[in-house]
Design a protein around this nucleic acid. Structure first.
Length: 438
DNA sequence: TCTGGGGTCCTAGGACCC
DNA sequence: TCTGGGGTCCTAGGACCC
């Protein structure tokens, strides 16, 4: 594939089977065994060891569908320990960051490095050094893909992982044109970064099967049928860099807190408890990034896996009088939205709260007609509230989430997520997990 | 019986304005 | 027969990612 020479060089470093690898660091007996890690609610498989993958356990498969395979092969089943994975991620990213002045942390287990200007080095050897250091210092096995565009770096990373001859590092620029040809033509278009299930199917229908087909496809046609995103992907496959490194850990533009219930509920009281808790959780995240929010959304969902039941997926948008990070105000707004959309007679399985229109707290607009203008010294009540929020966050951080909570969060929480089933056989493993301490 | 949660970006279409 | 046109803002929804 001919490509316009690009001055850019990206490395994509990612942890192999990251969640499983984190567990193995603290429990070496898991080495060599099939292991899966489940989603937050023990609902679906979100990580698999190579051994589990070889057994045909698919990613994102619901646990109840995989139960037979899991039992038959004595697969070790673990609930997610996001505290552990988050901590391991930070350590891993810090080590990887030593290898370039510019790093983008793309996800919990993936990081792009800017290696432009490192041309004097043997980048394959450099990649091996990254792998060795992360393995030695953090304990996580990684693979490295190096290429002139991020999309190709992802593809190279995939090759590094799947083809033993690369020994964990694939440097695109060191491949012969014939090798590149061969790699691209055997790589399914649907597996290219940015092509999901829907687009993959549509591409197939157009006769575009491989990454090579996609790279060679007519750009105007792609743009017309799919939009600029697809056009960019095709260009990136041709070696033309369209996606830059996004270095700054930008603040979230939206914050979501939502969760499925342990069992369906029809009661407004249950929903009020849930919405209160989700709003407070989102507000904590908002304060952590020192942001304020002026619009939020509340949504409810019935179980769409049961089409025979009446379906209702309402969404309410609530604008606040002034941007705020105050849990009480935000909860008041969320509950008013909830009352607007709640209808009796539906079996709700999930609720959620989404903060949108987030801005930095430093530029917060003063409320013209509100607490501050009500005859008190400016800022008095606002400041007291802010101090209360800080205190609440501190207590909850130290003593566990939800220790201090609003009354409307409730105590009974009959709807709360349960783990009874999955954990029946493996609940003890929680206790067996050594706890990582900084 | 049992199907995750938290993000981003882009686009189409309606409302509104001049 | 024929019913302005263009810009902007907002929202909902669709697609993708891990």
């Amino acid at each position: 594939m001919s490509s316009t020479p690009s001055a850019e060089v990206f490395a994509l470093v990612d942890g192999n089977n990251f969640y499983v690898s984190c567990e193995r660091v603290f429990n070496p007996r898991l080495e060599g065994r099939p292991v899966v890690v489940l989603s937050n609610n023990d609902g679906v498989v979100v990580a698999r060891s190579n051994e589990a993958r070889a057994l045909g356990i698919d990613m994102a498969i619901p646990v109840f569908k995989a139960r037979g395979l899991l039992r038959q092969h004595k697969v070790v089943v673990l609930s997610s320990n996001y505290t552990l994975y988050g901590d391991m991620s930070q350590r891993m990213m810090a080590v990887i960051g030593q290898f370039s002045p510019r790093q983008e942390i793309y996800s919990i287990d993936e990081s792009f490095l800017d290696l432009a200007g490192f041309g004097h080095l043997d980048l394959r050897e450099y990649g091996q050094e990254i792998r060795r250091r992360v393995r030695a210092w953090v304990g996580i096995p990684t693979c490295v893909g190096i290429a002139p565009t991020k999309t190709l770096a992802k593809l190279a990373n995939h090759c590094a992982k799947k083809r033993p001859e690369y020994d964990g590092v694939c440097d695109w620029s060191r491949l012969h044109p014939a090798q590149i040809e061969q790699l691209l033509s055997t790589f399914p278009a649907g597996d290219v970064w940015g092509i999901g299930h829907r687009w993959g199917t549509r591409l197939l229908a157009m006769g575009i099967r491989s990454a090579r087909d996609l790279a060679l496809a007519d750009a105007a046609l792609l743009r017309d049928r799919f939009g600029v995103v697809m056009e960019r992907i095709a260009r990136e496959l041709r070696g033309i860099s369209c996606l830059g490194l996004e270095e700054v850990g930008a603040d979230r533009k939206q914050i979501v807190s939502s969760r499925s219930f342990g069992r369906v509920t029809q009661s407004l009281e249950d929903l009020q408890e849930a919405v209160t808790q989700y709003t407070c959780r989102a507000a904590e995240k908002l304060r952590r990034q020192a942001g304020v929010c002026s619009t939020l959304q509340v949504f409810l969902q019935t179980n769409s896996y049961k089409p025979e039941e009446p379906q209702y997926h309402p969404l309410a948008t609530v604008k606040l009088a002034a941007p705020t990070d105050d849990s009480l105000r935000l909860t008041g707004a969320a509950l008013s939205g909830l009352r607007r959309i709640y209808r009796a007679g539906f079996r709700y399985i999930k609720a959620g709260v989404m903060f949108t229109e987030i801005q930095p707290g430093a530029v917060r607009q003063l409320q013209l007609f509100g607490d501050d203008a009500a005859g008190r010294a400016p800022g008095t009540q606002t400041d007291a509230r802010a101090r209360l929020m800080v205190a609440m966050d501190r207590v909850n951080h130290r003593t566990g989430r939800g220790r201090l909570r609003l009354a409307s969060a409730g105590i009974r929480n009959a709807w709360a997520m349960k783990r009874e089933k999955m954990t029946r056989a493996y609940t003890t493993r929680w206790d067996e997990l050594p706890v990582a301490r900084a």
